[in-house]
Design a protein around this nucleic acid. Structure first.
Lengths: 338, 338
DNA sequence: TTGAAAGCGCTAACAT
DNA sequence: ATGTTAGCGCTTTCAA
């Protein structure tokens, strides 16, 4: 339709220079006479020239774009998108990419076919690298990207042993923060609601919590397992309460399960935090909505996401760089529940 | 680096045909001898060929990609990303685009410079069209895209009078649903917490609610204005309670404000819904987290987003199509608060 | 039905 | 410091 969009040729003609010089000015090459430079700049303005990315990519072999790949088991990616946690990742990524004017393309990879497509997407030259958001430890996606030789960075340590860069949280330390807080406020019979065992982060939180409680002298920590949903938190709390009616503190591996626990405790007439103190993990939206508001462990998601993007950019620039990892520290957000 | 990625030339050579024929097979042109066709397909497989998008785009003048532009006043886009509502939009868009193998690129446009960049992004040929998520009625973004002749579809009716396609919700009907429900459960002194006046949807909800209450005989509806945040909901509820301590029903223009209202009502020892019934809008995550759970008006966000993407695709295919609008119906989700 | 050849708009040697 | 020129990998007339 717009066959009359101005090309570099037009700009060059209008400025009375060669295409090469026009290109140099546009790409900020400094070895250009200031006079011609301003001539070209003027021509760009009058013609309304905008460089054609396809043509540029064809010769530079760079897309100037990256993919944000959401992995997950079949159909689960949709659920990931609905999670505010993902919004925070996106926000961090976008913000960090903004200055370089690169924008992330969202690619869902929640089936084997979709995972193959995601790799193909990058190999087509639509992106120079990929940001991988994957939770399950048996995810094959990181391996696919590594095998294809595509620059990629993971959000969270890879489940399988794959040579890939990643950012992550010191989950054990976060859990320890929760333990310390519960003990400090006087809790002596503490239990925990753990996340799924196929999520490394969940395992780390569990181990971290156990170790910290051991340091405080509580050798045994009752555990009930959930799957990060509110309902599973309720179920787990029910189990815990049945087995240990005298417990006085609970650490849930995420906020959603913590809200479930809260509901059960309240319906069993436990006063929070007087009878039972509750600590969650993530500092997500639900943590604010409960009454009492949830004391929780916060992770700097935006910063982590921004760092992830930064790492990817350096690896795109120099693909020979070895895999890097950056681990962030969590902090406790004391509110009302503990 | 990967100078040895196979090209169409390689495939043609391996199949013993011309580049043109190989291209035809790959693009599914039917006028090809079945024998050569399978030869080419085999060659594609053995060489591991993947078409280069840049080269293809250069000649076809299509990117095969679209932009998902998040607009907003300065810096507010970040906040939009954190909103689960946006996640649902994304999810709907992605799902609807999946079959066509096009993936949305996230572009933030929360400053004048960023808005100009967003337009430039498409004009560079990186996308064939744009999905615009914009809330404020004075947003200049839709106009910019229309002026640039770029196919674009809005989520929500444009504030300014711009000839552009959009999908939207029948907000007045949603508000009427809330009014009907409150009246049906016996509320007689009903107030509302409205959203910002520069958000058309907020205005529609307010008008819709007023009209419906008028139909039910309540001529005057006390209004306190918020800005869609929980805190503003608390503030508004405080005002309402001060002026009308005997109110027995509240409709908040979104769930977040409703949760704020809930908190205030509870701290003022109103039992929900016995003393005061509360209805929210959006059916978002916070609606589940409150105790009691929030009765709210739900919109089919994913469907709306999917339709928005579908419309964009048709307009990309035929740019001469006139602007289309599709309005969706909300429904009430009765839970515990009303 | 197939192949030859002409570009799409741009960058990057290379030569000047 | 500038211009000339040769492609980047692909689609698409145009002939055969």
């Amino acid at each position: 339709m717009n066959s009359n969009r101005p090309t570099l040729e037009d700009v060059a003609k209008a400025a009375g220079v060669s295409r090469a010089t026009a290109s140099r000015v546009i790409n900020g090459v400094l070895t250009v006479d200031p006079a011609m430079q301003s001539k070209v700049e003027a021509a760009v303005r009058t013609t309304g020239y905008v460089p054609n990315t396809a043509a540029r990519s064809l010769v530079t072999r760079k897309a100037g774009a990256i993919a944000l790949v959401i992995s997950g088991s079949d159909g689960s990616a949709e659920q990931v998108l609905g999670d505010p946690f993902f919004g925070r990742i996106t926000s961090g990524v976008v913000k960090s990419l903004l200055p370089q004017k690169v924008h992330p393309t969202l690619v869902l990879a929640d089936s084997d076919a979709a995972r193959a497509d995601a790799v193909a997407y990058v190999r087509q030259g639509k992106a120079d690298g990929a940001l991988l958001v994957s939770t399950h430890s048996d995810d094959t996606l990181p391996g696919l990207f590594v095998d294809a030789g595509i620059p990629a960075v993971l959000f969270a340590r890879p489940g399988r042993d794959v040579p890939i860069s990643y950012v992550d949280l010191a989950h054990e330390r976060g859990a320890a923060l929760a333990a310390d807080h519960l003990v400090a406020r006087g809790c002596r019979r503490v239990a925990t609601i753990a996340g799924p065992s196929d999520v490394p982060a969940a395992q780390d939180r569990l181990t971290g919590f156990r170790h910290a409680m051991a340091r405080h002298g509580q050798a045994y920590v009752p555990v009930a397992k959930g799957n990060f949903t509110r309902e599973s938190g309720e179920q787990a709390m029910l189990e815990l309460l049945a087995a240990h009616p005298d417990l006085d503190g609970v650490f849930a591996a995420n906020d959603l399960m913590a809200t479930g626990a809260l509901k059960i405790l309240q319906s069993h007439h436990r006063s929070i935090p007087a009878d039972v103190a509750v600590v969650g993990f993530d500092d997500s939206e639900p943590a604010h909505s409960t009454r009492p508001q949830l004391t929780t462990v916060a992770q700097p998601v935006e910063e982590m996401a921004a760092e992830m993007a930064r790492i990817l950019l350096t690896h795109i620039e120099d693909p020979t760089l070895p895999p890097t990892s950056v681990i962030f520290d969590p902090h406790l957000v004391p509110r009302e529940s503990a």
